[in-house]
């Protein structure tokens, strides 16, 4: 009689070895991400700081002129910082209302069949490469903007804002839609039972209940807008001016992309410094995103 020992035996040992091995594999692969992030951070900090140190942090961040190749070079990136901030704010101002309304439509209003069609469109929009957005922007939007506002060129900040506001839609829509769909049906029923209309229920109960998720969608959109390179490069004109809605401008990302192919020596170092500034922006946005998501799970 071996009632308990029946569960032990040789195969148990093998199982243990397999378990231990698999855990080691999972751990090792999990580390890949951390190593990548650490490497990028270290690279940017090590390579970005020298130029900032030589120019001076304040002069670098607040300088209004960028003449990286001139006889009398100047390395002020305030125009790039402001352009990135303005284009992001502009894209959010246009993209969020459209995205939120679409999410409400998908989660609460549309019948399932129509919602599936719109949803497919949203997913396709998310899958379009940014160079295609830029291309369409260049061929269609830029001339249209030029004619509409009677400008010398349509490759201006406004065009970039318009392209970015479409590009951030899929992220905002899918995150907000998920948050809205997760609002307990009971909340909405309680609202209807008090004599609220569907619109009142959506805006006074569903949207507030999903606000953390919607905030996460907005932050995701901010991240996408501030980090976009290719499409912006193709429609914004890329002149390192202080930003103006109707003039060409250059953002943090495009400032790097414009000169990276030929820059050497100190000029190259300043581009890495711009990368470090951009990295800091993205980090802040991610912290805000994590905060918004955590609050979402608590509520």
């Amino acid at each position: 009689m071996r009632p308990y020992n029946a569960f032990l035996g040789v195969h148990m040992k093998t199982k243990n070895i397999v378990e231990k091995t698999m855990q080691a594999v999972f751990f090792a692969l999990g580390m890949v991400t951390i190593i990548a992030v650490a490497t990028i951070s270290a690279f940017l900090i090590i390579n970005g700081i020298p130029a900032i140190r030589e120019i001076g942090l304040w002069a670098f961040l607040s300088g209004q002129e960028w003449r990286s190749t001139g006889a009398n070079p100047a390395f002020g990136i305030l125009p790039f910082i402001l352009t990135s901030i303005y284009s992001t704010i502009g894209a959010i101002l246009i993209g969020v209302p459209i995205g939120l309304m679409t999410a409400i439509f998908l989660a609460k209003v549309a019948n399932p069949r129509l919602a599936a069609v719109v949803n497919t469109a949203v997913e396709l929009l998310a899958g379009i490469p940014s160079v295609v957005y830029g291309f369409v922007g260049m061929i269609v939007l830029v001339p249209l903007v030029q004619r509409t506002f009677a400008l010398a060129s349509g490759a201006i900040l406004l065009s970039a804002i318009l392209v970015l506001s479409v590009m951030i839609l899929p992220g905002i829509i899918s995150v907000s839609r998920t948050a809205l769909a997760a609002v307990p049906r009971e909340y909405e029923e309680a609202s209807f039972a008090l004599g609220a209309t569907k619109t009142e229920t959506i805006f006074k109960v569903s949207v507030p209940a999903a606000k953390s998720g919607i905030a996460a969608g907005v932050v995701l959109g901010i991240g996408r807008a501030i980090g976009e390179v290719m499409a912006v490069l193709m429609v914004m004109g890329n002149v390192p001016n202080m930003p103006n809605l109707f003039e060409p401008a250059r953002s943090l990302t495009t400032a790097i992309a414009m000169e990276l192919s030929y820059a050497t020596g100190f000029q190259r170092q300043t581009l890495l410094s711009i990368g470090l500034v951009l990295f800091c922006f993205i980090m802040m946005i991610n912290l805000i995103l994590n905060f918004a998501l955590k609050r979402g799970y608590k509520a």
Partner: peptide, 14 residues
């Protein structure tokens, strides 16, 4: 629905 109020099975405060 304003005249005929309702209380649900699971307490569902907003």
């Amino acid at each position: 629905r304003k005249s005929i109020g309702m209380v649900f099975q699971k307490p569902n405060p907003f």
